[in-house]
Computed example of a mutant assay.
Amino acid sequence: MESLFDPSYPKAFAAFSTEHWIAIVILIALAALLYLFRSVIVSTTALQKTVKWSLLAALSLPEASLHLWYVLTGIWDPATSLPLELCSLTLFLSIAILLTDERRLYPLVYFAGIGGALQAILTPNLDYPFPHFRFFHFFTVHTAIILTALYMTWVRGYRPTWKSIGWTMVFLNVSAVLVGLVNWAVGSNYMFLMRKPETASLLDLLGPHPLYIMVEEFIALVLFILMYVVFFVIPDHIKRSRRHGREEIPGSSAGS
């Protein structure tokens, strides 16, 4: 029987296999539950703390276990094992915002966290299938990144702004420059700045290197704008229109 911690596990991950679909469905179900019970969580301090610490555990424990696994199996390599992927950066930002409630971190967690982790879940750059340890690590931390952003939005009441979209784009570009320097120094490919991943991904549709990086910039900006308009601007407009309509009704009746 193959070890579920074996770095030379003989089987390979298959995108949109049964196990992959189950992971996607679990994400959707957890997000739906968080939304449906958001008011209950907000009004119950003990429940809010339970959700918060559950998210912290789902983010930190698998990630710590991953780096311990790298060391114990002798496969730690600065070219592949440093936490310099975008989702690794947003994972640490997610932990930080849960611990500190720092509002300046929220746009990064909301825009970059959801955008990057959702793409990762839909098109995983993953070599190991279920039930390998890396399978559970991958889907647990990426799901927790998304749920943390939703928790801060629906439960803690944080909101992005137009200005925070620009702040997130600055963060992404500064991170890319710094990670690019590491790539150049150690021969790595963090954030896929040097070449596309070997597994199928959305980058395959965006042209050759380095064109796809510039296209990614444009797509990220458009995605962030849509995430703000669809989930904040439009709902706010609808709420204002309904309030205005209710306020108009008494006056209209009185004047008729």
Rank of each mutant, 00 (worst) to 15 (best):
E2S: 15
F5M: 08
S8N: 13
Y9K: 01
P10W: 08
P10A: 10
P10C: 09
F13W: 04
A14I: 11
F16G: 02
S17N: 02
S17Q: 09
S17W: 12
E19G: 08
H20P: 05
H20F: 08
I22Q: 06
A23H: 05
I24Y: 02
L30H: 08
L33V: 14
F37A: 07
R38F: 04
S39R: 14
I41A: 09
V42H: 09
V42R: 15
L47F: 13
L47A: 12
T50C: 14
T50E: 08
V51Y: 04
V51P: 01
W53V: 05
A57M: 11
L59H: 02
L61N: 07
P62I: 06
A64S: 15
H67I: 04
W69K: 03
W69Y: 04
D77C: 06
P78F: 03
L82I: 06
P83D: 14
L84F: 13
L84R: 01
L84Q: 10
L86T: 10
L86V: 12
C87N: 03
S88M: 06
S88N: 15
L89W: 07
L91F: 10
F92E: 06
L93G: 01
S94E: 01
I95Y: 06
I97F: 10
I97S: 01
L98H: 00
L99H: 06
L99S: 09
D101N: 14
R103S: 14
R104F: 13
Y106W: 07
Y106T: 03
P107A: 02
P107Y: 04
A112P: 03
A117V: 01
L118M: 11
I121N: 03
L122Q: 02
T123P: 05
P124N: 01
N125Y: 12
L126S: 00
D127C: 07
Y128G: 00
P129W: 07
P129I: 02
R134K: 07
T143E: 09
A144R: 03
I145C: 08
L147W: 05
L147N: 06
T148I: 05
L150V: 04
M152N: 10
M152I: 04
T153G: 05
R159G: 00
R159M: 06
R159Y: 08
P160Q: 02
I165H: 00
I165M: 02
I165A: 00
W167K: 12
T168A: 14
N173I: 10
V177Q: 09
L181M: 15
L181C: 14
L181Q: 14
L181H: 13
V182Q: 05
V182G: 03
N183K: 06
A185Y: 14
G187N: 12
S188W: 01
N189Q: 04
F192M: 10
L193K: 09
M194A: 15
A200W: 15
L202N: 08
L202I: 15
L203T: 05
D204H: 07
D204C: 11
G207M: 11
P210T: 11
L211I: 13
Y212H: 11
M214V: 15
I219S: 02
A220P: 01
V222K: 01
F224W: 04
M227K: 00
V229N: 05
V229A: 09
V229E: 02
V229F: 05
V229M: 08
P235T: 09
P235H: 07
I238Q: 11
R240W: 10
S241H: 13
S241N: 13
H244E: 14
R246A: 12
